[in-house]
């Protein structure tokens, strides 16, 4: 089951790459902010349908959940908008490198301290090596 979760995460990234390439084209015709809006709007419809047919959780838990745990949507918007704004200034390559490094460093800090309700998993040698390998890979891609 754990291997399976790694494969799902790999697939998630693959989907994001296809999405980015396709939305780049859509953004040219309808505008960048409009493209983000379209993405979230369609996502709501797709997930709304999935929820109606397959939802097993408790949506009503939202009312009791801590308010900070509901901020995922806003953070997603900040992420998309920051990319859309910065690509024209510094190019796709540098934008992606900056985003990915920010993402890796922050993931490590969040997990090390167990912030935001995530499982507390200490940083170790292997994880640092993983991040260094990723940075080398990023430099080689560009």
């Amino acid at each position: 089951m754990r291997y399976f979760a790694y494969i799902l995460a790999l697939l998630a990234g693959a989907a994001l790459s296809f999405e980015g390439a396709i939305y780049g084209e859509l953004g040219k015709t309808i505008g960048q902010l409009e493209t983000s809006f379209y993405n979230f709007f369609m996502g709501s419809i797709i997930m709304g349908l999935l929820w109606i047919f397959f939802g097993k959780g408790k949506l009503s838990h939202t009312a009791e959940a801590p308010k900070w745990s509901l901020l995922g949507g806003l953070l997603g918007v900040v992420y998309l908008t920051s990319i859309v704004i910065s690509v024209p200034f510094v190019g796709v390559g540098i934008t992606m490198v900056a985003v990915i490094i920010g993402q890796m460093v922050m993931s490590m800090i969040i997990e090390h301290y167990g912030w935001l309700g995530s499982k507390k998993l200490k940083i170790n040698k292997e994880k640092i090596f993983a991040v260094i390998s990723m940075i080398i890979a990023l430099v080689l891609v560009n």
């Binding site: 997603g76 900040v78 992420y79 920051s82 910065s86 900056a98 985003v99 920010g102 890796m104 922050m106």
Partner: peptide, 8 residues
């Protein structure tokens, strides 16, 4: 932006 994505 990357930081917000991992927080998300």
């Amino acid at each position: 932006g990357g930081i917000t994505l991992s927080a998300q």
